[in-house]
Nucleic acid binder design. Structure first.
Lengths: 195, 195
DNA sequence: GTTTTTTCTGAACAGATGTTCAGATACCGT
DNA sequence: ACGGTATCTGAACATCTGTTCAGAAAAAAC
């Protein structure tokens, strides 16, 4: 046996990424084998190496693509004027973006220690860029006098940590709508930062 | 060769737990082998099985012990009167307790998916007990009129998520003292929940 | 219809994995 | 000094790991 009927790289490629994403998010990078990923796609393990040079690159690409999409989506969003409005936009954007991609987000925040040092460096820079955006908003708000924040670096990580928790409990079609969740979190963020 | 000079279960036992704790926190449960743990202790892999029936029990015991110590420490702490004072006590307690045990905390929140279903159940119950304490405080504060919280369940997870982020950046002897960190976080929590 | 390219299989590789256990040595009570 | 017990070694086990590759079949190009 060899090439299977109907096989196409345009189909198999994305399916491999999807399977890896799903399995990594569910069981963790180290606990998932290449044969498991291949099995989910319906292919032998060797076939994966037509699409990735190794397992590590599979993880790295997933994380890098996600962070680049995150940053790109931020850039296309319009920035309102005033730190308060910017913080609201950031909060709602962050929640919405991540609730639509729970697996990507889970991986981006949980699998950092499974990256090689070089890959970790790259991901760290991208993540830093995103966090810097939030910190910029907070700093602007402090000079504007609308926020009261003793340490903007700590506040940045606190806000992100708080927002990230949402993926641990939110389920689409559950008790709360996406809009309600956004509003609840925005309420807490606003009050926590307010002067 | 066989029993080594100076070997004692009172010494080796804790050393195995310490090594497992440290390695699991640093590299993740699935990425750490029994031989690595044994190597850190200075012993052969087979010797570990005098102290644990298997690798899974090693993880489970670490998590269970940590959560039981957390709950026990909470019980010995005095509870002030009034939801506001209780929330402050909880916040400061949570930060202090976890900053003193960063590895245990890391494991307790990151390795849940590596537990067997039965063990996951047990850990989930313990963790729920702890979170229920916070939610109880929040609910009391709402009826007292000192808190304004649309959804106490969401707020509970938001507060804990925010506080947990502290272990990702805090380093003893760094820019901020433990007391300062406590105060900064308490400020944010207080404002976020305040009526 | 023939050739070229794309896509996959299936077997193989060297090494790592969790776990077991007989036997050897150190320690401890007498 | 001796017997019993506690503690560890070292080898073995079956299985799994990531990865490579020659060859075969399907698809695409001509």
């Amino acid at each position: 046996m060899a090439r299977t009927a109907g096989s196409h790289s345009d189909i198999t490629g994305p399916r491999i990424n999807d399977a890896a994403l799903h399995l990594f998010a569910r069981h963790g990078y180290a606990a998932v084998s290449m044969r498991q990923i291949a099995g989910e796609v319906g292919v032998q393990a060797g076939a994966l190496y037509n699409y990735t040079p190794d397992k590590q690159s599979l993880l790295f690409t997933l994380m890098k693509d996600h962070l680049e999409q995150l940053l790109a989506a931020r850039r296309t969003a319009e920035t309102p004027s005033g730190a308060m409005a910017q913080l609201e936009a950031f909060t709602r954007f962050h929640i919405r973006f991540h609730l639509e991609r729970p697996d990507e987000m889970f991986i981006a925040y949980m699998e950092l220690r499974n990256l090689t040092p070089e890959n970790f460096e790259v991901i760290g820079v991208l993540r830093g860029q995103y966090e810097d955006e939030l910190e910029g908003i907070l700093r602007t708000g402090v000079t504007e006098g609308v926020f009261s924040i003793p340490d903007t670096k700590v506040a940045t990580l606190a806000v992100i940590g708080m927002l990230n928790g949402v993926t641990t409990w939110y389920r689409a079609g559950g008790r709360l709508s996406l809009d309600q969740v956004e509003t609840i979190y925005w309420d807490m963020v606003r009050k926590a930062m307010a002067a």
